[in-house]
Simulated scan of single mutants.
Amino acid sequence: MTPTLALFLGFILALALMAARSRFAGFLSQRPEHFRGKGPVLDLRRHLSGPILCEGVIYGPLGRVTSRFVADMHATWDGSTGTMTEDFRYDSGSVQHRVWTLRVGNDGVVHATAPDVEGEGTGRLEGPALRLDYRIRLPEDAGGHVLNVTDWMYLMENGTIMNRSQFRKFGIKVAELVATMRPVAA
């Protein structure tokens, strides 16, 4: 075997191992059914309702914090259709506003749309967890790129929702978000 062929085969093997890790042992390997019967049941109509305070950090591709934010959210429901407004304030001083439309089926399937989401996001509720996948277009001042997003939300015993999201471009993780969402006391 020539050194060039050995290097090429080593490169291919490394890519295959990285893909296998991601599929079978990483963040993207989680499935909603893994959470069936484990803990309190996440009901978006109940747990994402009214005023909500969200606090979080965004990590860049190297794992360093690139931004911190606080968001005021408010969700209302009409049957199985909800509207959730989000007003983000970032540590840079910038602000962002988003309005989600959420539809929850009796089977736990969730559909989500927002002006900066391309097409429709789809997800599934199971036990205390929600997985939601969608494509988001970043603002022009952030490059205007379209990223694939996987959101995982986990209901905690005290009613707080922990959110972990990964943002990918061409299958490569370019950012990660970790946030809490807590109901605002009346």
Rank of each mutant, 00 (worst) to 15 (best):
L7I: 05
L7E: 05
F8N: 12
F11K: 12
A14L: 14
A14P: 13
A19M: 03
R23Y: 13
F24G: 13
F24V: 13
F24Y: 15
F27Y: 13
L28A: 11
S29H: 04
S29W: 04
S29V: 04
Q30S: 09
P32N: 04
E33W: 13
F35E: 01
R36V: 08
G37Y: 08
K38S: 08
G39V: 05
P40V: 05
L42C: 06
D43W: 10
D43F: 11
L44R: 12
L44D: 11
R46C: 02
R46E: 02
H47A: 04
G50T: 01
G50F: 00
I52V: 07
L53T: 03
L53H: 02
E55Q: 07
G56D: 05
I58G: 01
Y59M: 09
G60D: 13
G60M: 10
P61L: 09
V65F: 00
V65N: 03
R68E: 03
R68S: 02
R68H: 04
R68I: 00
V70G: 07
V70F: 07
V70K: 09
M73N: 04
H74W: 00
H74E: 04
A75T: 11
T76G: 07
T76A: 08
W77H: 06
W77M: 03
G79R: 09
S80L: 15
S80M: 15
T83E: 10
M84P: 03
M84V: 05
T85S: 08
F88H: 02
F88K: 01
R89L: 11
Y90R: 08
D91L: 03
S92Y: 10
Q96A: 12
Q96W: 13
Q96M: 11
H97N: 12
H97G: 07
R98N: 12
R98M: 12
R98Q: 12
V99W: 03
W100L: 14
L102K: 10
R103P: 12
V104R: 09
G108Q: 05
V109T: 10
V109C: 06
V110Y: 14
H111Q: 15
H111A: 15
A112Y: 00
A112P: 01
V117C: 08
E118R: 06
E120P: 13
T122Q: 14
G123V: 06
G123H: 06
R124P: 11
L125V: 03
E126D: 11
G127R: 13
P128S: 12
L130Y: 08
L132D: 10
D133G: 15
R137E: 07
L138F: 09
L138W: 09
P139Y: 03
D141K: 14
D141M: 15
A142M: 06
A142D: 06
G143H: 00
G144P: 07
G144L: 06
H145P: 01
V146L: 00
V146C: 00
L147K: 01
N148P: 05
V149S: 10
V149Q: 12
T150P: 10
T150L: 12
T150D: 08
D151Q: 08
M153G: 10
Y154E: 09
L155M: 02
M156Y: 03
E157P: 01
E157I: 02
E157C: 01
N158F: 00
G159Q: 02
T160Q: 00
I161Y: 01
S165Y: 02
K169F: 09
I172D: 09
K173T: 15
V178S: 10
V178P: 05
A179E: 08
P183T: 00
V184S: 00
A186T: 05
